[in-house]
């Protein structure tokens, strides 16, 4: 599966890349919202994992863009901070498919992403 990770924290980005690559996924990385939007159009990933707070375009804008342009073809999981219930609800309203709250365990993230992708395959 092709996964795009949009995250402005380099360490977090590399950590997610490392973990998800180990699971056999093809990983693309974006360090800000603008780069993420470009990569979505050029790489057409199956799943986008995006942080909420990023330079240029926020995670919310990415969710909105994905749902407007690609409808349900590209799934999106948002990464949000603890206690951001309102943000999560807003992301769901815009069309986010799932969320993961920071702090998280990379292994738990891997399990959740793989389960999510398995669910996508089953419904396809």
């Amino acid at each position: 599966m092709k996964i795009l990770i949009a995250e402005d924290d380099e360490l977090m980005l590399r950590t997610l890349e490392f973990r998800l690559k180990k699971d056999g996924h093809t990983i693309f990385m974006a360090r800000d919202g603008r780069e993420a939007l470009e990569q979505i159009d050029s790489k057409l990933p199956d799943l986008v994992i995006t942080d909420i707070m990023m330079p240029y375009s926020s995670g919310m804008e990415i969710v909105g863009f994905l749902k407007q342009k690609y409808n349900n073809e590209i799934k999106v999981i948002i990464l949000s901070g603890m206690g951001q219930e309102n943000v999560i609800l807003e992301a769901f309203r815009l069309g986010a498919d799932d969320y993961i709250t920071k702090p998280f365990s990379p292994n738990e993230l891997s399990v959740r992403v793989n389960r999510f992708l398995a669910g996508m395959k089953n419904t396809a």
Partner: peptide, 15 residues
């Protein structure tokens, strides 16, 4: 600084 930032984002065995 880097360790503190990473720790704030991780739980479980990684933490």
């Amino acid at each position: 600084r880097e360790l503190i930032a990473a720790k704030q984002n991780m739980t479980g065995a990684a933490s």
